[in-house]
Write a protein that binds this DNA or RNA. Structure first.
Lengths: 148, 148
DNA sequence: ATAAATGCAAACCGTTTGCAAGCTC
DNA sequence: GAGCTTGCAAACGGTTTGCATTTAT
């Protein structure tokens, strides 16, 4: 019942034996549609809506595969389950509001300059910088001031 | 068999009904002895060495309590279980080596200036900044160069 | 005496895994 | 046919919880 497809000529990773299946195509599509972070269950639920036979273990197995292939990254926030996001090109900075929970991506000023200083000072080779800000967003700040 | 003590006058939190017990005193002591991050099991094992009747659930329950009281904070690294650390006064920055796993605390240059810029630009009230660097530490960088 | 704290074992829940069946090439 | 992929159900492992007992006030 799954759509029959012609999969050759389109391997996920050159030189490996991984195949592009309908499940994988769907998962990749859902991941690319996801604006920010997502978790396994979210992807699973969305996948079920479109392709009602996929199983949760397939989602997990493929997320692991995608992680290994560098397509997604695992991130660890305050909750008790894994979160993923599309692999960022390099550094990554966001702000999370403690009141409404919104996550806003941003760019950290003076990042390159600070990185250089740290590399030099400590002798590190820095491959990735994660900056996570916490506080009140503009709207919630206003609400707070208004006593709401 | 646990040491009998006079616990009054030393409440964890004034005005609550929480009691200071031998278990709690021991746990707090172990936490304050811990240099950096720790997890529940680590604390449990250390506690067992000194006070051989404490149970893992007591450790968990107290870590939750300490979290609520603001004594420790939960942090989420790449592993699958919770990590804790003593509550930091404010911001927190560290570097983790992808090769040897060492975590090195550091201070991020131009932090205040960058924070001010972000606050202004986005209208955020920033209460906490977490910066997590990943890469190779000095020693591992050397090893890498040497082809080891 | 009363309410909080504890140990134990069982429950929980997100994630992983073994296995047999189904696909892709 | 060989080997990768999948669904299912069972296993796993860290964390939480119910309950009867102990302890602090």
């Amino acid at each position: 019942m799954a759509i029959k497809r012609h999969y050759n000529g389109n391997r996920i990773l050159n030189g490996t034996q991984q195949r592009i299946t309908a499940n994988r195509e769907l998962l990749l599509e859902l991941i690319h549609e996801s604006p920010g972070h997502f978790d396994a269950d979210e992807i699973y639920r969305k996948a079920r809506e479109k392709h009602n036979t996929i199983s949760l273990s397939t989602v997990y197995r493929n997320l692991q595969l995608f992680k290994k292939l560098g397509i997604v990254e695992e991130r660890h926030f305050s909750e008790d389950h894994h979160h993923y996001e599309k692999k960022q090109t390099g550094d990554h900075q966001h702000f999370q509001c403690t009141r409404c929970g919104t996550i806003i991506e941003l760019s950290w000023p003076l990042l390159e300059k600070s990185k250089d200083t740290v590399s030099e000072r400590y002798g590190f080779q820095i491959t990735r910088v994660e900056i996570e800000l916490t506080g009140l967003c503009f709207e919630c700040g206003k609400m707070r001031e208004a006593g709401l």
